[in-house]
C-alpha cells in the first residue's frame, strides 16, 4: 500500500487516535490459535487413525480421505453458522488448517448463491481462496525450479 504523505494536522490526529485505538490482543490470540489449531489437527489425526484402523489405508494414503472428511465437516459447520464464531475465537488457528481453506470456499459459495449458479457460485467460489491457489501453485513452481537448478548444478 502506498504510504501517503500526511500533513501535520493528519499526523497530529493520527497520534491522538492511536491512544484510543484498541489493540489486537496478540498474545491471547496466539494462545487461542494454538489451542484451536491444535484441536483441529487432533481431530484430523483421529480421523486418520480411524481410516487406518477400519479401512485399508496406509499412513500416506489416509491423508486424502482425512482432508475430504474435514472439509465435509467444515462445510456443515459453515452452513450452520458455527465456523465464523470459531474463526473469531481461534483466528489463525482455524484459518491455517485445511478447514480454513474449506471455509473460505464454502462461505463464498453460500454468499453468492443469490446471484445464480454460473455468475454467482461459479464466479465467486474462489473469491477468497483463489489467491491461496494462485500463490500456492506459483510458489511451488518457484521452489521446484530452484530445487531442479540446484540439483543440476550440484550434480
Amino acid at each position: 500500500m502506498p504510504k501517503k504523505n500526511l500533513n501535520p494536522e493528519q499526523q497530529k490526529y493520527q497520534q491522538l487516535q492511536k491512544q484510543h485505538e484498541l489493540k489486537r490482543p496478540v498474545l491471547m490470540n496466539c494462545i487461542r490459535a494454538f489451542w484451536v489449531g491444535g484441536l483441529i489437527c487432533m481431530i484430523g489425526q483421529a480421523i486418520t487413525y480411524f481410516y487406518i484402523y477400519f479401512f485399508n489405508f496406509t499412513e500416506q494414503t489416509a491423508g486424502n480421505p482425512t482432508v475430504a472428511t474435514l472439509i465435509f465437516i467444515v462445510m456443515l459447520l459453515t452452513g450452520f453458522g458455527i465456523y465464523d464464531h470459531l474463526g473469531q475465537f481461534g483466528g489463525a488457528g482455524s484459518a491455517v488448517p485445511v478447514t480454513g481453506f474449506g471455509n473460505a470456499v464454502i462461505s463464498a459459495a453460500i454468499e453468492h448463491r443469490s446471484e445464480g449458479y454460473v455468475l454467482g457460485v461459479g464466479g465467486n467460489i474462489f473469491k477468497l481462496a483463489g489467491s491461496v491457489i494462485v500463490f500456492g501453485t506459483f510458489s511451488a513452481f518457484v521452489v521446484a525450479l530452484i530445487k531442479t537448478i540446484i540439483g543440476m548444478i550440484g550434480g
Partner: peptide
C-alpha cells in the same frame, strides 16, 4: 458485510476496532 468485507460465514478474525 457481503459488499464491504468477507462473506458472512467466513471465519475471519475481526480486530477489536
Amino acid at each position: 458485510e457481503k459488499q464491504f468485507r468477507y462473506p458472512t460465514e467466513y471465519g475471519g478474525q475481526k480486530p477489536p476496532t
